[in-house]
Design a protein around this nucleic acid. Structure first.
Lengths: 114, 114
DNA sequence: ATAACGCGTAAGTTACTACTTACGCATCCG
DNA sequence: CGGATGCGTAAGTAGTAACTTACGCGTTAT
């Protein structure tokens, strides 16, 4: 049907949506509760939560007439792994540069290029 | 001048741009080199690299008529910290649920919520 | 010098997305 | 039984962003 799984990177890219997620990650809460602390309408929050759901970053369960959202590990796992990979690779590159100092063929990189 | 430090979340949200960054993180390389492995034009790669630069995720230095890009730690740091925070919070919530003792977000009625 | 290479940027197009209001469906309370 | 609360979804809109081609500038090679 629709996109079964949303890229978690994309899901957390939007600042508002990231605030929504941060709120949920901090502790289980309802939609209206989240919307109360944000400068957007409740439906907007609902839509953000949908994206977070599709990205498997949050989980929901009905309780009475409320829908309580809570964070979920699965969506974060891939993100974490990927970021950790970038991190270590960058560390390695950085060490390479530090050890080999620099190539004398290039003029000083600190020179102000206006 | 660049008061506009780009959100690294946003910078890594686009799949193509993430591929560009992954390539750079793997090892220093030039623009044409990156574009060769991707289904987009060279200018597109340049534009992606600009965003990555603004997000402080990559670094560049001129060498002859080439511009060599390499990964940079500073942009990743904030990302990593934030993600780690989400991760640990989610772990905590998860444990709470496992123990069947979830607490309301507001300071609250003492007894078991049941 | 002239050509070829490597690159950034401008300009234009197209697709997506984050938001709004309006609505309908459940669930709790009087 | 209503009326109120909590929520998701539909529909419409304004802004953004990811691409393309065209171009100009500096550097290397012939």
């Amino acid at each position: 049907m629709e996109t079964s799984t949303v890229d978690p990177w994309h899901a957390l890219a939007d600042p508002t949506r990231r605030k929504v997620f941060a709120r949920v990650a901090h502790g289980q809460c309802s939609v209206t509760e989240i919307a109360r602390d944000l400068p957007v309408s409740r439906p907007a929050v609902s839509q953000h939560l949908r994206v977070l759901l599709d990205a498997q970053l949050v989980d929901v369960h009905q309780q009475g007439r409320e829908r309580l959202y809570r964070p979920r590990l699965s969506g974060l796992e891939g993100l974490r792994r990927e970021l950790e990979s970038y991190w270590s690779q960058t560390l390695t590159r950085f060490k390479d540069v530090a050890e080999q100092t620099y190539e004398p063929t290039t003029p000083a990189p600190e020179g102000k290029t206006r």
